[in-house]
Design a binder for these strands. Structure first.
Lengths: 205, 205
DNA sequence: CCTGTTCTTGACCGATTGGTCAAAAAGAAC
DNA sequence: GTTCTTTTTGACCAATCGGTCAAGAACAGG
């Protein structure tokens, strides 16, 4: 309904079911490709019942996007300016890759939104995200200048961490097809990416 | 119509218009999110007129996917086992990045298909693509063993080249938002990625 | 010009879309 | 059990979906 924090247990449960179903459907088909009937079926509810909890398809999507932006920013927030540069960045890579492994649907939902031109997320990208990235980029640049990190463009470094880690979630079908059976892409990715970024970031290579 | 190679000029032109419009719409909204009316409008045709050239929405998509798979494989095909290892791989990176710059819609169409689980492309991924990748991975492994290239997992190297180059096309909105105005992501990406892969691939680093 | 083919279109179809509504069912409080 | 609120649902709506069709318009070749 319209009460912001769901009160009864049944409200909490159904709201959560709907968001989970929405995540499933939106992440696979995008906003326009997803249907309320599909989401309702996935959530185990009738369509009117679903619309009792969320006023519209868009409302479900907006709620998901809000949550998503927070989850998405979290790993970068934890990058500690006081820690060891290489170790901190490697830990960030690991956190991001863990998110790809544990929340592939969230990663795909995000990818879908960006692919469509981020119509419902552009403000957050240019606001919160840009601010956070600029802040952390300054930290990285400082490390680089102090010789504690290889010389590297901080913004593009962050972008390449996103690209490499998210790719393993978003393109997992392709990766599995190319690697063939008997591979665990995520496990292989972790050691591969740690090696890659160690080589890339360690100063005086 | 049903004749495979379009004969008249008007057929060629309209077919091309439709495919171009389909690329535009499918790459932004995915298969289910795209509508025939949208594609028809984009192509400057009426809907029945569009269906005079293609029997169905799916037929347009299939045609686009066939073309896409070829364009997508081409840059990797050109990787020459006889050339200099690092130079060959850097050239591959540049080719892939050029594709991201020159054909961003194709890249997004591909990303959309994979995100949705590659329902109309899985066979090609497990067939042509896997064969080609395995072949080139063998070449790379040979280079690595001969000490002409840094030790690296060939499959994941190829995957990371895909991830890094395609990201600049698929996530351009986010990248522009994060970099802010006054940046040319693609130009910056080229020098950044060349530096990155030089460092990564040059032996005895 | 005429004739046959190619191309284009308006009207239309059943199915599905996002969403409404009134009324019934299920809980909760007493 | 009665009453009040919360939850659920079947029936329904206008708009849009992918696709059909018959008839007309434009274009050939002669």
């Amino acid at each position: 309904m319209n009460l912001q924090p769901p009160r009864t247990r049944i409200q909490r449960k159904n709201t959560e079911n709907i968001l989970n179903a929405g995540l499933e459907v939106f992440s696979r088909h995008g906003f326009r490709g997803a249907t309320l009937d599909q989401i309702a079926a996935e959530a185990g509810l009738s369509k009117p019942n679903l619309l009792y909890y969320f006023p519209s398809k868009e409302a479900i999507h907006v709620t998901l996007m809000d949550r998503l932006m927070q989850t998405w920013l979290d790993p970068l927030r934890k990058l500690d300016a006081g820690g060891d540069p290489v170790a901190e960045l490697l830990a960030y890579v690991r956190r991001k890759l863990q998110m790809s492994r544990d929340f592939p649907r969230e990663s795909k939902l995000f990818a879908n939104e960006i692919l469509q031109g981020a119509p419902r997320m552009l403000a957050a990208l240019e606001g919160d995200l840009k601010r956070l990235v600029d802040e952390k980029a300054t930290v990285i640049a400082g490390w680089s200048r102090a010789g504690r990190l290889a010389r590297i463009d901080p913004h593009h470094l962050i972008i390449s961490i996103w690209a490499l880690t998210q790719h393993y979630a978003d393109f997992d079908v392709q990766i599995r097809a190319v690697l063939g059976p008997g591979h665990d892409p995520m496990t292989e990715a972790e050691s591969y990416l740690v090696t890659l970024f160690t080589k890339l970031l360690t100063p005086e290579g």
